[in-house]
């Protein structure tokens, strides 16, 4: 099992989750974070701190978010690890709760 970041993180990227994760298993893209399913130790600590309520226990994923498991797995392979908390993206509050964010997901690998 693992924990999974879902769409409400897109364009928000508050990184409170990174701060609490004991194993630093978050990976960072331009406007989204994902959890590495093999590295996550299922401690449940990140769920409550995520201001966007974007993180789910794999078993609790709502039907329409199930595909995020594969997406987390895929992107964790190509994105760099993030270990320190950063400021949220500038428009985070505005984007919080906006529906259908998946189309805004930027899957590119950051430079450097």
């Amino acid at each position: 099992m693992t924990y999974v970041v879902t769409d409400n993180c897109i364009q928000c990227k508050y990184t409170d989750c990174v701060e609490v994760c004991p194993v630093e298993c978050f990976y960072e893209g331009p406007n989204f974070l994902v959890i590495h399913p093999g590295e996550c130790i299922d401690c449940d600590d990140c769920v409550d701190v995520c201001p966007a309520n974007a993180i789910f226990n794999e078993d609790d994923l709502p039907e329409d978010k199930k595909h995020f498991l594969a997406l987390n797995e895929e992107l964790a392979q190509i994105w760099p690890q993030i270990t320190d908390q950063k400021d949220p993206l500038p428009d985070a509050a505005k984007w919080d709760g906006v529906a259908g964010k998946l189309e805004h997901l930027d899957k590119s690998v950051p430079e450097g």
């Binding site: 099992m1 194993v23 093999g38 590295e39 996550c40 130790i41 299922d42 078993d59 270990t83």
Partner: peptide, 15 residues
């Protein structure tokens, strides 16, 4: 440095 660990944990009985 942090190592990379894939413990392949199964949590819960659902699976």
């Amino acid at each position: 440095t942090n190592g990379k660990y894939d413990r392949e944990i199964i949590t819960g009985l659902k699976k």
